[in-house]
Write a protein that binds this DNA or RNA. Structure first.
Length: 555
RNA sequence: GCACCCGUAGCUCAGCGGAUUAGAGUACUUGGCUUCGAACCAAGGGGUCGCAGGUUCGAAUCCUGCCGGGUGUACCA
């Protein structure tokens, strides 16, 4: 409907003023109408006419030619045009069917990116949640979406963890792995990483040992060694990490079709970087291979270190090439924490030098850190970090202490909604109690709103009736419902799922206001109103679905 | 030092070129349930939109400078 109206207004402008203009309609406050546009103000300059007069001319034209769609057209303020939809036009704009604007497009979305041999922390949960929402939005718009994951199964951090494990075992003794209970594996490796990092930073004698172990890990891959004692420890621990990731993703409802380990991207990254030394993209410097980002207003980074090993930079180059090779995508979206923003610019700028189309098809989105409200201290035993599962546990506890359910469905809904509702970019302050509360702008509130609407619908049979003209209260709700597709379209276009949260909450408020003053069951307008309640419940469920949040029938 | 991100009600955040009165949630004050789930609704107090300039008919929104916070800045990921 919005697009059709924009077309209509553009046509009116064309006919009246012989002027081409990209018309943009906005949603004004309800008192002003259903749509508004400031085209008259935009035209005032070029046409050298009074904006109000331009607006009056356009209003008259729209009233004369489109009375079927527009109930009223009014000029307001300095020259705004306020449009109010006719009953049938409003009825026609009530649907939650997505516009398949991205159909035919192949999009790879990479997010989450936890590293084996390290902790799966709150930040990974955050990216996973927003990444899912963004992927869902793209898919909803008709794109062929591929969700992929990337993580460091090789690299210095692995050397650190391996060093600590070997140190703890008193040698390369894979049999000792059997002593680690399954439920402790993840935390045990995370703790080893913490010890390894400490040793690396504080003990000059150990540092070279860890560097050597890092190199040995690369060798395991190069020689396909699965048998040596060191190899057995490495592969077993790597698998433990992957198993843990899988179970966590299953728990939160994330699904990745492919996991790129860095060991797969390291070689191709290394080769690609070396290949482009000759043409001057990368260059030797102090025994390392760098990309001179300063030339482009960025900063310089090392892609191959003086040990001859690829750094994360080269592995990311390799990953880009692998993803392009595997998917032949139209667009690649990478979601990471914002501390990688400038790093990624350097990597992409270097790729742009030899594969401009690949760099230009890539979008890097970033988000901030997850911080617990009140700065709850994590125990040093856990390494001073907030694990992903800690967030879920804290939410479950908060729910219980409010005397509510700690059902996984509700806890996940609470956490996901709390994460997504903020615009991506800055850090988010996570308040467990607020997130699980059924009062206010929260996931459980919307789940409850859905359950409540479904409850009404269960009490009465819905006939085959068509929607008829709305009365005042119905119209207000209908108008809010009609915004659904526009909001989803915007969230998709801007890759900002938080718009969906804002809208769903407003929709629920709009419904509650309607419901407060209008009877549904046993009212003469029951059939009509049940249709609206149905549309409302559907919108809530679809919208929550896009956010990766379930909409229960009862709570 | 330089680069990037962020500074909006006590707190947590939307709004990111438009509408007499800058919006939500929360917290606080008050009113509303013998009726479809009141986990709701209605009303009230609370803001020099970090500061100062500039562009514009119009700036929380764009530009510049400053202040404050965060992050990054050569062999970590």
């Amino acid at each position: 409907m919005k697009q059709a109206l924009e077309h209509i207004v553009a046509q009116a402008v064309r006919e009246a003023f012989n002027h081409e203009l990209a018309v943009e309609l906005t949603r004004p406050e309800e008192q002003f109408g259903d749509y508004a546009t400031n085209v008259a103000l935009q035209l005032a300059g070029p046409l050298e006419q009074n904006p109000r007069e331009i607006a009056e001319t356009l209003a008259a034209s729209l009233r004369d030619n489109h009375a079927d769609v527009l109930e009223s057209v009014e000029v307001a303020g300095p020259g705004f045009l306020n449009l109010r939809l006719s009953q049938h036009a409003l009825r026609d704009s009530l649907n939650t069917q997505p516009e398949r604007s991205l159909s035919g497009q192949k999009i790879v979305v990479e997010y989450s990116d936890p590293n084996p041999f390290k902790v799966l922390h709150a930040g990974h949960l955050y990216t996973s949640v927003v990444g899912d929402a963004i992927a869902n939005l793209l898919e909803n718009a008709g794109a062929e979406v591929h969700r992929v994951n990337f993580g460091g199964d090789v690299g210095l951090h692995v050397g650190k963890t391996m060093w600590a494990i070997v140190n703890e075992f008193g040698g390369e003794l894979p049999d000792k792995l059997a002593d680690i209970p399954e439920s402790d594996r993840s935390d045990w490796m995370a703790a080893a990483y913490v010890r390894g990092t400490q040793a690396y930073d504080e003990d000059e004698a150990i540092k070279p040992e860890i560097v050597a172990l890092n190199k040995r890990v690369y060798e395991l891959h190069a020689t396909n060694d699965h048998d040596s004692a060191f190899a057995q420890i490495y592969w077993t621990c790597r698998q433990w990490s992957y198993d843990y990731f899988d179970s966590f993703y299953a728990r939160i409802g994330s699904h990745f079709e492919k996991y790129y380990p860095e060991s797969d991207t390291a070689q191709i990254g290394l080769e690609t970087v070396r290949e482009h030394i000759a043409d001057g993209v990368y260059q030797d410097s102090d025994g390392a291979v760098i990309f001179d980002g300063d030339k482009y207003g960025l900063h310089t980074r090392v892609f191959i270190n003086s040990e001859g090993l690829p750094t994360y930079e080269a592995k990311d180059v390799g990953l880009s090439i692998l993803k392009a090779h595997d998917y032949h995508f139209d667009r690649s979206i990478i979601i990471t924490a914002n501390e990688q923003e400038q790093y990624m610019q350097v990597v992409l700028k270097s790729i742009e030098q030899f594969a401009p189309e690949l760099a230009h098809a890539t979008t890097h989105l970033t988000h901030g850190m997850v911080k617990l409200k009140g700065g709850v201290k994590m125990s040093s035993r856990k390494g001073n970090f907030l694990r992903a599962i800690d967030v879920l546990d804290v939410a479950a506890e908060a729910s219980k202490s409010l005397g509510q359910t700690a059902d996984e469905e509700v806890v996940l809904g609470a956490v996901k909604y709390a994460f997504i509702k903020n615009r991506m970019g800055g850090d988010i302050i996570y308040d467990p109690a607020e997130s699980v509360s059924m009062e206010g702008n929260s996931g459980p509130y919307l789940q409850y709103a859905h359950a409540r609407a479904r409850s009404i619908l269960r009490k009465a049979a819905i006939g085959e009736t068509q929607l008829s003209d709305f009365d005042e209260g119905e119209r207000s709700l209908a108008r809010k419902l009609s915004e659904y597709t526009e909001v989803v379209e915007r969230a998709t276009r801007e890759l900002m799922p938080h718009h969906v949260c804002t809208y769903l909450y407003e929709l629920a408020q709009s419904f509650n206001r309607f419901y407060e003053h209008n009877r549904v069951i046993d009212d003469p307008r029951q059939a009509q109103r049940l249709q609206l309640v149905t549309l409302y419940a559907t919108a809530l469920k679809s919208g929550l679905g896009l956010l990766g949040i379930t909409a229960p029938e009862t709570m």
